[in-house]
Design a protein around this nucleic acid. Structure first.
Lengths: 342, 342
DNA sequence: AACTAAAATGCAATCGATTGCAATAACTAT
DNA sequence: ATAGTTATTGCAATCGATTGCATTTTAGTT
C-alpha cells in the first residue's frame, strides 16, 4: 500500500511555509473567509494553485464531522443473480449520481445481501456517509423501520406502507396499475393475467390496482390467472412456463415490471404465442429498452429522474433539519405496440 | 447538518474509560494485537460490543493514510443522455461492486462529462480513494495517459492501444469481431454492414476485425456499408434511418454493441424489414437482455464478471507494488435467433 | 504624536483514531 | 531475595485540516 502514490503530496502546512504565513491563514484564504486580506488571499491561492495543492478531504471531514458522501444501498432481491438485476435500478442509480454530483456530494455504492441486513447498520455506524438512500425496500421493511427510528438521514425508494416510520419516495403504483388494466379492458380483454411477485411491497400495490380495476370493470378475479414470477431469470422462465403448461385461457397480461414483460414475451415467442396478436401485454417501469423492444412495450412510466431528484431533495431536507414528507410520484400509461392498440 | 445524527456516537475514548484502560489498549484489543492480554482483550471487546461501538473510518484512514475506497469512473460518451447509457457498463458496475465488497473496499461512483476531464485529476488529488478504475477510455485517451504517468493505482477497462502508458483490462475485440463476421459469412451473407462509431477505441478494434474477416473471405470492403451510429438513442435512430434511406442492398449487420443491434432491429421493424428473415444481425457484449430479446440476439460475449475481477485484481496488485500487466480477455460467439442460424 | 478602533494574522486545541517507545507489572532463574 | 526477562499497558506524537480567541498590524481620529 506504499509507494503507490507517486503524485506530489502537498499539504496545507507546505503552502503556509511557502507563503510565509500560518496554516490558519491558508485555510481561511482558500475558503474565501473575509477575515483575510484580499492581497494575501490572492497570493496564497496562486501559490496553492502553482503547487497543485488539493485539500485532503479526509482531514477536513474529520474535523467538520461530515463526509460529503451519500450512500446508495441496493438490497439484493435474491441470492442467485449477484449483479444488479433490473435496469430500472440502474437507471435510478445514474440519475442519483447526477443529482448528488450537482450538489458536490459523492456516491458510495453498497449492495446488501438478503441474508445480512446488518450491513445497513454498520454502514451507518462507520460514518462513511452523511446520509443513506435505500433503493427498494425489498423484504427488509422491518429492518429499515427499526433502523429509521434511530437514524434520521435515511430515505427509501419504494412503497409508502401504512406502518412505515421512514420517509419514502415512490411511484403511484396503485393508480399506474389501474390505468394499465383499464387500458387492457378497454381493448376488450377479459381474462387478464397478473405476472409478478406481490410479496414485494411495490408489486403488492400494483396487484391491488389490478384487482381494483378488474372489480370496477365487473370482471371476476380469477386467482388462477396470477403467476408468481420471481426476480431471477431462470426462476422467472420456470414460473411462466409452469403457468402456460396449465393451459388456462387468457388474452392479456399485466406484468409487474418491464423485465417480467420482456421475459414473458420471450417465453411466449418460444411457444408460438404472438404478442400482441394472440396476447396483449402491458409492463411497468418504462425502462430505456421498453421503447426499443420489438414489439415496443406498452407500459406504465415511472418518473425515474423525478424520483431521484425527490430522493436527494428529501434527504438533504433531513440533513438540514427542514421538515419533509414522503413523496408519491404520478405514473402515466405509455401506449406502444405490445398491447395491440397501435 | 446538525441534529441529524441521533444515533449513539460512542468513540474509542469512551470505551477506554468504561474499561478503565487507555485508548491505546482499546485500539490494540480491537485489532487483535497480540500484545494485549487475552482476558483484557475479551473484556474490552465485550464492552465495545455492548455499547455498539463502531470504528470511525475517517479518523482511522487519516491516520493510516488510506481510504478503504476505490473510485469507479464512467466517462460519459455524450452530453445528451445524462444517465448511464449502456447496460453493459452497468453490469460491469454490479460486478465491480461485488469484487470490491469481497475485499471490504467501498465503491465511490463518479461520472465525468466529456467537457471536463479535470474531474479525474481532482478526484485523485482529493485522496478520497486508494485507487481508480476507469470504465471505457472513451475519447479521453490522452488525458488518461498523461494522468497515468503521475498516478499509479489506475486501471482502465478498454482497448490496449499501442501508445498507452496505463494498464488496461479489456476484451479481445478484434477476434470477437472476426468470429462474428465469419459466422455471417458462413451463413452465406456477402453484403455485411457495420453499425457503430469507430472513433471509440474499442469499436475501432471491432471494426478492424470486421475488415479483416471480410478480407479473409475475399469480400471487397464496401465503405458505404459502414453506418456511423452514435451512442445516444435519437442520434442512433437518425443515423440508421439515413443509412436505410440510401437503399443500399445488404443482407446482414454486424453491430458494434448489443444496444446498437437492438436499436437497429427496432428501426428495421418499423420499416418492415424482418430479422432474421430479411437481414441477419450480430451484436456485441451479450448484455443480459440479449438473450431475452425477441428475436434473441446472436452476439459476441464479453466476460464482464471476469473483466471486473481482472480490473480489481490488477488494481490491488498495483496498490501492493506487485508487478502486473494488462489483460486481454477472450471473447466468444453466442449464436441465437437474430442471425437466422437457429 | 498618541490613542483607539478595525483589520489581519497566528496560537493552540480539536476531530478520532494508531503506534513507537517508555514504564510498569508479573515471572523466572539463580 | 535479587537481578533479568518477558508480558502488558500507557504516554504522547501524529495524520491534515478548522476555528475560537489572543495578538499584532494597520488605519483613523483628534
Amino acid at each position: 500500500m506504499d509507494g503507490a502514490r507517486s503524485m506530489a503530496n502537498v499539504k496545507m502546512s507546505d503552502i503556509a511555509s511557502l507563503a510565509g504565513v500560518s496554516e490558519s491563514t491558508v485555510s481561511r484564504a482558500l475558503s474565501d473567509n473575509p477575515l483575510i486580506n484580499e492581497a494575501t488571499r490572492l497570493r496564497i491561492k496562486k501559490i496553492a494553485e502553482d503547487h497543485g495543492y488539493v485539500l485532503d478531504l479526509r482531514a477536513r471531514n474529520l474535523r467538520l464531522q461530515k463526509t460529503g458522501t451519500i450512500s446508495v444501498v441496493f438490497p439484493l432481491l435474491h441470492e442467485v443473480d449477484s449483479g444488479f438485476s433490473d435496469p430500472f435500478f440502474l437507471e435510478m442509480l445514474g440519475y442519483l449520481a447526477d443529482e448528488l454530483s450537482d450538489r458536490h456530494y459523492d456516491l458510495l455504492l453498497h449492495k446488501i445481501a438478503p441474508g445480512e441486513p446488518r450491513g445497513l447498520v454498520e454502514l451507518i455506524n462507520e460514518r462513511r456517509s452523511d446520509g443513506v438512500v435505500v433503493i427498494g425496500q425489498s423484504t427488509q421493511n422491518a429492518v429499515i423501520n427499526e433502523l429509521a427510528s434511530r437514524y434520521e438521514p435515511l430515505v427509501v425508494w419504494g412503497a409508502a406502507l401504512p406502518d412505515n416510520h421512514y420517509l419514502t419516495v415512490g411511484s403511484d403504483n396503485y393508480n399506474g396499475a389501474v390505468m394499465a388494466v383499464q387500458h387492457l379492458v378497454a381493448l376488450g380483454h377479459r381474462r387478464i393475467a397478473f405476472f409478478g411477485d406481490k410479496i414485494l411491497p411495490e408489486i403488492g400495490e400494483r396487484y391491488a390496482g389490478y384487482v381494483a380495476a378488474l372489480e370496477k370493470a365487473d370482471i371476476a378475479l380469477d386467482p388462477s390467472l396470477e403467476c408468481r414470477v420471481p426476480f431471477d431469470r431462470l426462476g422467472a422462465r420456470k414460473a411462466m412456463n409452469g403457468f402456460l403448461d396449465k393451459k388456462l385461457p387468457f388474452d392479456a397480461v399485466f406484468a409487474a415490471s418491464d423485465l417480467v414483460a420482456i421475459a414473458a414475451i420471450n417465453v411466449f415467442d418460444q411457444r408460438g404465442i404472438r404478442v400482441p396478436v394472440d396476447v396483449s401485454i402491458v409492463g411497468f417501469d418504462d425502462i430505456m429498452l421498453a421503447a426499443a423492444y420489438t414489439p415496443a412495450l406498452t407500459t406504465v412510466r415511472q418518473d425515474i429522474g423525478g424520483g431521484a431528484k425527490a430522493l436527494v431533495e428529501t434527504l438533504f431536507h433531513r440533513l438540514n433539519g427542514t421538515p419533509t414528507q414522503s413523496t408519491i410520484l404520478p405514473t402515466s400509461l405509455v401506449v406502444r405496440a405490445s398491447c395491440g392498440a397501435k
